[in-house]
Design a protein around this nucleic acid. Structure first.
Length: 284
DNA sequence: TTCCAGGTGGCAT
DNA sequence: ATGCCACATGGA
């Protein structure tokens, strides 16, 4: 069963926000969703649509069935990985319920260019700023229904509906300047993003590593999160740390990290990586 | 104040 | 092919 909190906070996506009632609000494919666990089901409280709850292997039944990757048998993958060694087995015990989302390629590329040498709260801020500045307006959402006491309080606080935007298209971004983007607070990444948008328009299928602002790590993230290549193994500072601590691999030896992942976790290196990332960030 | 964050581009070897 | 280093920004 997918765990929304783990899935949305494990560093693969940056636009889902937890509401006071524990539900999650986000934007996917130009629509606003508020997802909540209801017994054994995941429900979108805005449309009332049941997202999951039917047979895991059944036909696609909802808007977010593919996005949430409900059709992949994570229990089987977890059993396979847990059998590889005791370390990944305990990481899986912590991270059970994480799914690798099927995110839009372009939005994933933008998000992970922004992510470089940056921290997750600020990445989220930059992406929201970018959407508000240059994205398309989708609509407003007041937040989930509250009980009477809470909603009375909210009214006295003059609580207003939040506006939601999609991320800008490559066409839009390619025609902006660095000074246009100044309010987004991207720092030195702003020109990277504009160049990448222009390159995407020229040839969307170019090698990821050839986009400006994309090196090996960002390329691996985009392959994993934006192309659902489950064997891609991104190594950032956190994964370096955890691979060193748990498997004794020297932190500077990237080749050894990738070799280890290939030998131990293939063909699910990317999923193993998410468990390790979640594990080290939870435990510290 | 310095250090750090889901690193990469540019330049010198 | 590899090794340095500068690069904006904001929170700890």
């Amino acid at each position: 069963m997918i765990d929304l909190k783990k899935t949305f906070t494990c560093g693969q996506c940056f636009r889902w926000v937890e509401e006071p009632d524990g539900s999650w609000t986000g934007v996917v494919n130009g629509k606003i969703y508020n997802l909540k666990k209801d017994g054994e089901k995941i429900v979108d409280t805005i449309s009332g649509q049941v997202i999951t709850g039917q047979d895991l292997h059944g036909a696609s039944t909802s808007d977010l069935y593919d996005y949430l990757d409900i059709g992949t048998d994570y229990d089987a993958i977890n059993s396979y990985l847990a059998g590889r060694d005791e370390v990944i087995k305990s990481a899986i015990a912590e991270g059970d319920g994480i799914h690798i989302l099927r995110q839009d390629f372009w939005e994933t590329l933008v998000s992970f260019i922004i992510s470089q040498n940056n921290n997750i709260p600020r990445i989220m801020g930059c992406i929201e700023n970018l959407a508000a500045l240059a994205g398309e307006y989708i609509g407003t959402y007041d937040g989930p229904m509250m009980n009477e006491e809470a909603s009375a309080l909210a009214e006295t606080l003059a609580h207003s509906a939040k506006r939601y935007y999609s991320l800008p298209t490559p066409e839009k971004l390619a025609n902006l300047t660095v000074s246009d983007l100044a309010p987004v607070r991207l720092g030195y990444r702003a020109p990277y993003l504009i160049a990448a948008a222009q390159q995407f328009l020229e040839n969307p299928d170019r090698e990821l590593i050839d986009f400006t602002g994309v090196g090996p790590k960002v390329a691996n993230c985009v392959e994993l999160f934006g192309k659902h290549d489950l064997d891609s193994f991104p190594v950032d500072v956190w994964v370096k740390r955890v691979m060193n601590r748990l498997y004794g691999i020297p932190e500077e030896d990237m080749k050894a990290m990738h070799r280890f992942a290939e030998e131990h976790f293939s063909p699910y290196g990317g999923i193993a990586q998410q468990y390790l990332f979640y594990y080290v960030r939870e435990q510290g």
